[in-house]
Amino acid sequence: MHAITYETPKSLDEAVKLMAAHGEKARALSGGTDLLIQLRAGTRRPEYVVNIKNIPELTRISFSLQHGLKLGAAVPCIEIHENGDMRKYYPGLTEAAHLIGSLQIQSRASVGGNLCNGSPAADATPALIALGAQARVVGPKGERMVPVESFCLAPGRTVLQPGELLVEFHIPAPERRASDAYLRFIPRNEMDIAVVGVGAALTLDMSDDRVVAARIALGAVGPTPILAAEAAKSLIGKPLDAAAIDNAARLAIAASSPIDDMRGTAEFRRHVVGVLTRRTLAKAAERARE
């Protein structure tokens, strides 16, 4: 690995100043489970590596039923899984975080790093998109909120400008009869990168099984994670029966644009988008009904 300078700011202010001062030469270090591999491979060569895990705003989970969730970008995935509110109110996002790598990886890896790394196969990203999460970004020019579905631009590229930091995710408070789910397909049973990932969030009508609100997001089937808006829209106002689910699955397939690679063929991925969309919707609905 090339030589680096290591910084470990204690406050957001300090971090933003450091990041601003070094601009393109600096990279945030969250769990390091992507970054260290890239540094070693020489695909990223920042001079400054800024550890963001000692900054309070980035390392906390705050939740209330009124205000919803603020999830620090650098919170390790295992802490998300261990958090009772997360498991109860955002089970889809929680299971996505709990799918990332092994326990060793989850002890370090963060949802913020998962998104900022910009991989189309990132497991947490479709779950965040399904929940309508907004990313709070702070940089030399101030602060902005970015919907997660607009965060990634291409494999490995995001909206983050040099010097900018992702601080936290803002996720709306869960409605009643609402829930989410995330499923992915991998050839092994753990330790694999998603060949297809599908996140879904559903709100059902209080009296019957009609869908009031829905969001569906797809991972690993395009250059960025995809918000399958048409598929979700097709469910609104309808009871969530087999026909509606099939139709949404079809539209999800249409929204995907997978390629052939070592993880699977495009043909296989399209098929599995359909399978997983059905399974994820069923799971989210089951949870919403509870």
Binding site: P187, R188, N189, E190, M191, D192, I193, M262, R263
Partner: peptide, 16 residues
């Protein structure tokens, strides 16, 4: 060679 790491070479883990 595209799968030059164990994540994508996919040997069985104990869950498999």
């Amino acid at each position: 060679l595209r799968n030059t790491g164990l994540l994508d070479y996919r040997m069985p883990t104990c869950l498999d």
